[in-house]
Structures are given as structure tokens and as C-alpha cells.
Computed example of a mutant assay.
Amino acid sequence: MAKLGDVIIHVEKENLQSSVNATEYGVEQGEPFTDHIEKKPDIVSLSVYLIGEDHKTRMEKLKGYQRIGKLVKYVGRSAVDNVVILDISRDYTAEIMNGVAVSVVLRKVRIAKSPWVKAPPKKKPSVKPPTKGGEKKPTQKKTRPSPATYHTVKPGDTYWGLSKRYGSSIQQLRTWNKYPDRSIPINVKLRVK
């Protein structure tokens, strides 16, 4: 006796097949070379009898597993998790009066698990918090940035001299104005604050 999903079956023969694919590249002389081995999924072939008055119901259940691609567990001489039913072949003979002989082919499936997890939905409060109706909310005064200050360049003005006069750093003056230190044009307005 064995079990496929939640269907009880009588297994006559069980064949577990493990195989690999090996790439093959031909060469001019000698053996071809291989640079990659890839494991193929395990295949389980079963020769099964479904015997009893409910054999048709169990057969329909197995066909349902196959149709929807349900992952099931097979437990017989060997146990294999996460298998899908690839093929079901029925054999009606006079030797079996109260059932059917069935060949079943199973394949092991590996399930990819995603590291992504959906966040749980946010819970809404069941009771609304009390409102402060009629109360005047305090307003915050918006602070405006101080207006920029400009200086008209005269002969002899430098970033160093302007930084001492207005209190801004030389680097900040360079960033605001984009003129090289040694060639600041005369009569140009420079931002100094």
C-alpha cells in the first residue's frame, strides 16, 4: 500500500529515475568536451492498482490533481515531496474485476521562494479620536530667507576683501558668483550675502 496525495494506491512496481544533462562540444580529434552538468528533476514511475468499489472516485481525484498541477507527496517504498502528476495511463483487463491497473509518472518540482514579503494591511482605528471642534489652531509664522545682498564691483575688490566686509566665506562667494578669483569684472553685481 502507498499513498499519493490523500489517495490510497496499491503499488506493484516503483521506479525512481535521477539524471543529468551534460553539454557536449565536438572537437576535430578525440572525445567531445563537456563544460556544464545540469541536474534534471527526479522522475518516479509507478505501476499501480486501484482496487475496490471506490476505484473510480480515487481515479478522478488523481486526474484532478493532474489537471490543476497540484503538488502532492508520494509515500511508498520511497517518499518524495512536491511532485506533480505528469502522466496517467489506465489499463482495463479481465484479470482485474473490481478496479483498474494504472501507470503514473510523477516529477519532482522545486519551488522558488521569494524574499519579498507583502506588508500586512494597516489597521484602521475602530473608534475615531475626539475632535477639537471650535478650537482655533495656533498658526506658525513662516520665516522667509533673508533677501540676498549684492555689491557692485569696484577696482581692487577681491573675494577675500568682500568676505571680510560682509561676513560670507570665500568659497560661498565663489559658488554664488562663478567668476574666477583673478578676473572679477568691474561694475558687475556680485552676491555677497
Rank of each mutant, 00 (worst) to 15 (best):
V188K: 09
L162T: 11
G52Y: 00
L71R: 11
S146Q: 13
S126G: 00
W160G: 12
L162V: 07
T149H: 03
R110I: 06
K141I: 11
R174N: 07
G167V: 03
F33V: 07
D35E: 13
E95G: 10
G167T: 02
V72F: 12
G161D: 12
S89G: 01
V117L: 12
V80W: 02
H55E: 12
Y74S: 08
W160V: 13
G30V: 03
S45Y: 01
T93L: 03
D87R: 11
I43M: 01
W116L: 14
P180F: 01
I68W: 03
P129C: 03
P115V: 07
T131L: 15
Y92E: 02
S47H: 07
T143N: 14
D87I: 07
R182L: 10
I88M: 04
I184G: 07
M59D: 01
E12L: 13
A119Y: 02
V83S: 14
V153G: 09
S89P: 12
D91A: 13
R77V: 03
K128W: 07
T93Y: 05
L50D: 00
L106E: 09
I184F: 10
S183G: 00
V84K: 13
L162K: 08
T143H: 14
S114I: 10
R174A: 04
I186T: 13
P185E: 04
G156M: 04
V117T: 13
I184W: 00
V192I: 03
I8A: 15
V153E: 10
G134D: 04
N187C: 00
K154A: 10
R67C: 07
T57P: 02
Y74Q: 10
G69L: 11
D54A: 05
K132P: 02
T158V: 08
I68F: 09
G99P: 06
V188M: 02
E95S: 08
T149K: 14
V188G: 13
S126P: 14
R182S: 06
V75G: 05
I111F: 06
S183M: 05
R77K: 05
L173A: 06
Y25F: 13
T139V: 09
L4K: 00
K113E: 12
G133L: 10
P130L: 04
I9G: 08
L62E: 11
K3C: 05
K40D: 07
A112C: 06
S18K: 14
K70P: 13
F33H: 08
V20F: 05
P138C: 02
V105Q: 14
K122G: 13
P138I: 03
V84Q: 12
R165C: 06
I88E: 10
K164A: 09
K3D: 05
W160I: 12
D91C: 00
